[in-house]
């Protein structure tokens, strides 16, 4: 997808987003924009609202207030079009354990009406290195291999935007580079990525922009090029400790 084909001036645009669960406020008037092609990593401690943010952006949970636009589509009125434009990798594999890897991918491909499905499966299997285990039952695969199948599932429909919820869980260094490679290989150009994690080290290695989420709001944002990791750790400890 060329830049001019992409809907909206930002890949992700969030304005005054709030989410409450009963009396608990998980997200507080959060404002955030992610430009096309950016790799934004959001750090935050447990309970900061990271997973809630990903759930809202992936249309699983409705926001209480605020406006969200993804790929130029409004979250409330165009949720189906948004789902077509995003790929989600979370700490759960979202794979049927009693189906083989290829059966999982076929099912997912049919749900997304992926054209030329069998060829596309082979293509993504090659990218994430799972060609040899495609016929294996998912439950017998290692966590690392299941994660690779999960990444293949997320990029099968070639989404321009990826949402990653702590994807580094159960990924070794090699698998992490597979993830980075998979994210970068798209026929539609550089993918836009929003990743949430509590691992400063892993997130730093992947992103080109960072933000810190604490108690439901973004309290810090910067480019990784203008910072070093130790400075970020200091800022993180300072802000998360204070919030």
């Amino acid at each position: 997808m060329n830049t001019e084909d992409r809907g909206g001036s930002y890949a992700i645009s969030i304005r005054a987003l709030s989410k409450t669960f009963g009396s608990e406020m998980a997200i507080r008037k959060l404002d955030l924009t992610v430009s096309w092609g950016d790799f934004l990593v959001i750090f935050g401690p447990n309970g900061a609202g990271k997973t809630t943010l990903i759930k809202i952006l992936s249309t699983i949970t409705s926001p209480t207030n605020g406006e969200v636009s993804i790929a130029g589509f409004d979250l409330k009125s165009d949720s189906s079009l948004i789902r077509r434009n995003i790929g989600v990798v979370s700490h759960q594999s979202q794979l049927y354990q009693d189906l083989s890897a290829i059966e999982n991918l076929r099912f997912h491909g049919k749900m997304f009406s992926v054209p030329g499905l069998e060829n596309r499966i082979m293509e993504v299997a090659d990218i994430v290195g799972i060609k040899s285990i495609l016929d294996h039952k998912t439950s017998v695969l290692s966590h690392g291999m299941q994660k690779r199948v999960s990444i293949a599932r997320a990029i099968l429909h070639d989404p321009p935007i990826m949402l990653l919820d702590e994807p580094e869980t159960s990924l070794d260094q090699e698998a992490l580079s597979v993830l980075k490679n998979a994210i970068n290989q798209s026929e539609r150009g550089q993918r836009t990525v929003l990743m949430v994690t509590h691992s400063l080290e892993r997130g730093w290695a992947l992103g080109d922009r960072i933000a810190i989420l604490a108690r439901g709001n973004i309290v810090y944002e910067n480019n990784t090029a203008s910072l070093d990791q130790s400075t970020v750790i200091e800022i993180y400890n300072d802000l998360v400790g204070r919030s």
Binding site: S58, S90, Q92, S93, Q94, H108, M111
Partner: peptide
């Protein structure tokens, strides 16, 4: 394994 979420993402 979060399959329900997987369905809802389609």
């Amino acid at each position: 394994q979060g399959n329900l979420v997987g369905l809802m993402l389609a």
